[in-house]
C-alpha cells in the first residue's frame, strides 16, 4: 500500500525578488511499513521535503497523496487534523514543551485529539514505559538527559498511534551511544509495530539502520537504493518497490 506518493513536487521560496527553488519536481513513493533514510547536504531540499511530507508546509505545485488522499491543497485546520492523527514528529532539538512534565508532553497530542483524560494518562504512562522512562514520567524536560528527552519525544510521536513517524535528524544532538539506542527504538517501531519510519539524516552510519536511502542534491533525488538491511529484510522482494 502506497502510504506516501508525491508527484512533480515543487517548493519555491520567495525572498523579495529572489526565488529559491528548494524542490524541483520530486517524485517519490513510500509504502506502508518502509524504513527510509533521506540524506543530503544542507540546502539539498531534504528538510523542505520533510516539512511537506509532515503537512507543516504546502507545496508550491505538484501533488502529495497521503493514504491516497491529496493533501497538497487542504486548509490549515485539516492539515492540523492529519498531523494529529497520521504523523508523529521527532525533532533534532527534541522540541519538548518546557516546564511541562514528560507525561504532559506525551499527553499533548491526545489532548488535541480529544482523548478522555483517564485514557490519555494510561496510554502516556504505557508509552513512556515502552521507551524505558516508566519511572520518570513526572520529570521536567530540563531534568533529563538528551537521550531521555528524545525518548519522551518518540513516546509523544506515538501517542495517537499514527502510521507514519517522521524524524528530522533525531540523533543530531545525541552522543553515539544514545544515537544507537534511539535508532534501535525506531527499528523496533518499524519491525514490530509496523510503522512507516522516515528519517532525515546526514550521517551515513545512521542511514545504515534503515532499509532504503534516498539521497538529495539541489532539490532533486539523485540516488534511491536499498541498504544491506533492506535487501536482507526481504520486504522489497514482496512489494517490488524501488
Amino acid at each position: 500500500m502506497e502510504v506516501i506518493k508525491v508527484c512533480n513536487l515543487e517548493k519555491i521560496y520567495k525572498n523579495g525578488n529572489i526565488e529559491v527553488k528548494a524542490l524541483k519536481g520530486v517524485n517519490l513513493t513510500i509504502h506502508q511499513g518502509e524504513f527510509v533514510a533521506i540524506m543530503g547536504a544542507s540546502g539539498s531540499g531534504k528538510s523542505t521535503l520533510m516539512n511537506v511530507l509532515g503537512c507543516l508546509d504546502k507545496p508550491s505545485s505538484g501533488n502529495y497523496y497521503l493514504d491516497g488522499e491529496d493533501v497538497s491543497r487542504l486548509r490549515d485546520d485539516e492539515l492540523s487534523y492529519i498531523r494529529n492523527r497520521k504523523i508523529g514528529f521527532v525533532f533534532q532539538s527534541f522540541n519538548l514543551i518546557p516546564r511541562t512534565s514528560a507525561l504532559k508532553n506525551v499527553e499533548l497530542p491526545m489532548v488535541y485529539g480529544r482523548t478522555a483524560k483517564q485514557e490519555r494518562r494510561k496510554r502516556a504512562i504505557s508509552l513512556l514505559t515502552d521507551v524505558g522512562l516508566g519511572d520518570r514520567y513526572n520529570h521536567m524536560p530540563n531534568e533529563i538527559s538528551g537521550g531521555q528527552k528524545q525518548r519522551v519525544a518518540i513516546a509523544r510521536a506515538l501517542a495517537n498511534e499514527p502510521p507514519i513517524i517522521l524524524a528530522d535528524e533525531p540523533t543530531g544532538n545525541l552522543d553515539s551511544k544514545s544515537s544507537v539506542e534511539i535508532m534501535e527504538i525506531f527499528t523496533d517501531l518499524n519491525r514490530n509495530r509496523g510503522n512507516t519510519v522516515i528519517i532525515v539524516t546526514h550521517e551515513p552510519d545512521i542511514a545504515e539502520f534503515t532499509d532504503r536511502v534516498i539521497t538529495f542534491r539541489d532539490g532533486n533525488i539523485i540516488k534511491d537504493e536499498l541498504t544491506g538491511r533492506g535487501v536482507a529484510s526481504g520486504f522489497y522482494g514482496e512489494v517490488s518497490g524501488k
Binding site: 509532515g54 507543516l56 490549515d76 485546520d77 492540523s80 487534523y81 498531523r83 494529529n84 492523527r85 514528529f89 522540541n95 519538548l96 514543551i97 518546557p98 499533548l108 497530542p109 488535541y112 485529539g113 509523544r156 495517537n160
Partner: peptide, 15 residues
C-alpha cells in the same frame, strides 16, 4: 517555538 510544537502535534488555530 512552543506554539510551533503544539501546531506540529495537531493543535488547530482555534486551540
Amino acid at each position: 517555538r512552543e506554539i510551533g510544537i503544539r501546531k506540529s502535534l495537531g493543535a488547530r488555530t482555534k486551540d
